[in-house]
Amino acid sequence: MIVIFLLIGISLCIAGGALAAFIWAVNGRQYEDTYTPSIRILIDDSKQDYHDQESN
């Protein structure tokens, strides 16, 4: 049962990683504008791509 000390340590580290990822996302301003990226993702990268897609 002594292994439980190790397991709790590992699980806390993993959960801490998720927390760090969350803090990184907040500091990266990902929650400040949640609408514009939904438009941006639909825009193709270059003019050429756009025409290719249109002819399909």
């Binding site: 927390l19 500091n27 929650y31 400040e32």
Partner: peptide, 12 residues
């Protein structure tokens, strides 16, 4: 933004 990290830390 500090508020969101506070919320995240408390939830964690």
């Amino acid at each position: 933004r500090g508020f969101y990290t506070r919320l995240g830390v408390a939830g964690f």
